[in-house]
Amino acid sequence: MEFKKVLVPVVGTEADEEAMRLACRLAKKDKGKIWSVFVVAIKRALPLDAEIESEIKKAEEILDRVESIATEEDYETETDILQAREVGPAIVDEAVERGVDLILMGIAYKQRFGQFSLGNVVPYVLKNSPCPVILYQQ
């Protein structure tokens, strides 16, 4: 399989860093391109273009960290902040728009009501992704 275009959605967990390292190694082989995105979810009580400074600052920090990980791996990544109503559809839409070959997501171990849970975003992406998806769990 060739991974010429890889999308790495990040949320700021440690798993993101490992996912980015893995993305760099996979993309290097095929001289592929990596996009890393952070999706700011905007509640319906606000316009979609509302600038929530704290959220954008947090996104900036996370994307800076991801860029530095790529630099450590001697590779480059293009980063972007997206604002959307729902995170899952925004990731899938971005993958379709960019025509990526792979979505690589880092996931943290989470429990909900005492049970292991993937949350809402990962299942949505798995169900609707136009390309292969790799989940990396630490």
């Binding site: 902040i81 109503r85 839409d93 971005e94």
Partner: peptide, 12 residues
């Protein structure tokens, strides 16, 4: 330069 002015809106 910050990305702050470059965030894109996902219109669905």
């Amino acid at each position: 330069p910050l990305r702050i002015k470059h965030f894109r809106l996902k219109r669905v």
